[in-house]
Design a protein around this nucleic acid. Structure first.
Lengths: 339, 339
DNA sequence: CTGAAAGCGCTAACAG
DNA sequence: CTGTTAGCGCTTTCAG
């Protein structure tokens, strides 16, 4: 079953069938109707491979994730899938599992399948492997920052707003000794969150105690380790801002094991608002970064690059997109019990 | 850059290049070396679309999931990706999010991209939409059970062994009043787990109390609800087997809120052994069903179907594959405190 | 506005 | 064992 069968059935040429399917406006309406009818009757749909081969357009976008088993990512994948499908694109997912050598493989797979664009959702672990994508002139989307290659968009997450809201929220509850468990410093997004925290503390005239600034790694274990460190301090903090929800959840566990009650003895704020945040005990106050918004913005940017006529490059202002964040107050934050 | 450039550079015909790349054994070694060298030098890799168009083989497997944000599935995806890539296949992932109408779309996407096989990982929510895949003679892999279509493999999870081990473990700890929170009865896998539980209880001569058999839905909320129900009983159970880990984790939360200590007052066993199971408090004793094994078996079955010569259909015994389960004892089970 | 025809890059007869 | 060549199903000039 192919386009010729349709042409025969509709009594037109294959060219007309092709034009009709591709909504070329100059097709006579009578013929077009005949064609659509034939397509329906035969339950025909075009062969994507042939189409891709001829047109040079695969209608596939690539998605490079750092680690699909991190609950942040499946939610992103879901949004990505939804947006891409709506526009008729398929999506090629690769999870590099923190293994830099797999990045090379991922890039190769993208190249082989001739993706029309790639969203790099590794939050800073970009590496030079991506040069090959840029060299192939493939549109690229990064989060926070990325190399200044030609057809590129950067999704700038507005960490500052959400984190400022978090610090203000804690300050309003009377907290002064606010700690921070940061993320892996190799990740730009960790550093930006950390900087936003420090900045907000200064804005609020809150003291920044070096001993309250501990390093985590965006894992449950890291969060638990950081928590133990903070709780063993001579003068422990009354509140903690965590660089992500996994860290905060690890902290919650360690606190519970140490018989420290949240939020009575300690207030906790996470970041990301993963699904699980609402189901831990107590439900986590956290800064929401919408995965759906991130995904939609990424797909939108890729589309606009992929579909831009080669001569008319997308305007400069379309090359940065801001992603909002918002404090979501649940039950892990409360009034400071200390004077 | 195409196969002709390679041919020119290696001073052979395109046919030889093609044969070399496809490891046809009758290529002279001298030529083959020249070809590989040219491929290296030019950094050439074949155009997948052209290859697929000509050969009729897309080298793509489809994967239909019920819900990617359920932590069980990303782990499965990871295994699937790993196995498929190793064999040179790409993978097209669709998450139908419990929305039956999306199943139709998923099937359409599979058909359009001409996948060479589909693993249906929806644990029982198959539905007639799959007829179209079977009608297109696409190899199919199901879990537990599936329609008797031609090129099909069923992955039979050996629920009985793991669940029996769980019940025996509880019995050995002195538990008699063992409850069960089951999963959604529409899912075959829920029913099989439930049946295995009842069967094991009988084998052990343990009493099956109707009031201790409550329905869950494989979500955290469902587990919490079931827990509240069980704990409010005149005579609550001393142990609970849950149909999956999410249910067990929901139960853990509800128990903690009700000041019921696990495992002191209540022993809990989950099923699946998702990543999170090891990070809740207390770490969950659970029945492990290896996602990697499931994924590997699925990919293996799809390959053997896809690559079988049309005349030599895979042998009957290759059409059922058993997936083992194993009790993993952690900290959520302990000695029964009641006489 | 429509149709004929030339490929897109590759594979697989078929002929040497 | 190697090379020539005819398509796979579709899009897109180029003529009509």
């Amino acid at each position: 079953m192919d386009i010729r069968d349709v042409a025969r059935s509709a009594k037109v040429s294959v060219a007309t069938v092709s034009r009709t399917m591709n909504l070329v406006p100059t097709v006579d309406e009578k013929l077009s109707r005949r064609v659509w009818q034939a397509i329906e009757e035969l339950n025909f749909y075009p062969n994507t491979q042939a189409r891709a081969l001829k047109s040079g357009r695969s209608r596939i976008f690539g998605l490079i994730l750092s680690e699909i088993t991190n609950p942040f990512f499946p939610e992103l994948v879901q949004g990505f899938e939804e947006s891409a499908i709506k526009d008729g694109y398929e999506i090629l997912i690769t999870s590099i599992s923190h293994d830099h050598s797999r990045m090379e493989l991922a890039v190769r797979r993208m190249l082989e399948r001739k993706v029309e664009g790639v969203a790099v959702m590794t939050f800073g672990v970009e590496l030079p492997y991506l040069d090959r994508l840029a060299a192939a002139d493939i549109p690229l989307v990064f989060v926070d920052d990325g190399p200044p290659v030609p057809r590129r968009t950067i999704l700038q997450v507005d960490y500052a707003t959400g984190i400022r809201q978090g610090v203000q929220h804690l300050a309003a509850l009377g907290h002064q000794r606010i700690a921070c468990i940061s993320g892996p410093p190799q990740q730009l997004s960790s550093r930006l969150r950390y900087d936003a925290f420090l900045e907000s503390m200064r804005e609020m005239d809150l003291p920044i105690e070096p001993e309250l600034l501990v390093k985590g790694d965006h894992t449950l274990q890291g969060g638990a380790a950081g928590a133990r460190r903070l709780l063993s301090l001579q003068q422990p903090p009354t509140a903690v801002m965590c660089s992500n929800d996994l860290t905060a959840i690890g902290l919650l566990r360690a606190a519970s094991q140490a018989h420290v009650s949240v939020p009575r003895d300690l207030s906790v704020i996470g970041f990301d608002d993963i699904h699980l945040a609402d189901f831990v005990s107590p439900p986590l106050t956290t800064v929401r970064m919408s995965r759906a918004a991130l995904a939609e913005a990424a797909v939108g940017a890729l589309r606009s690059h992929a579909e831009a006529s080669p001569d008319r490059i997308a305007p400069e202002n379309a090359r940065f997109v801001s992603i909002p964040t918002l404090l979501t107050v649940r039950r892990s934050t409360g009034l400071c019990a200390w004077p």
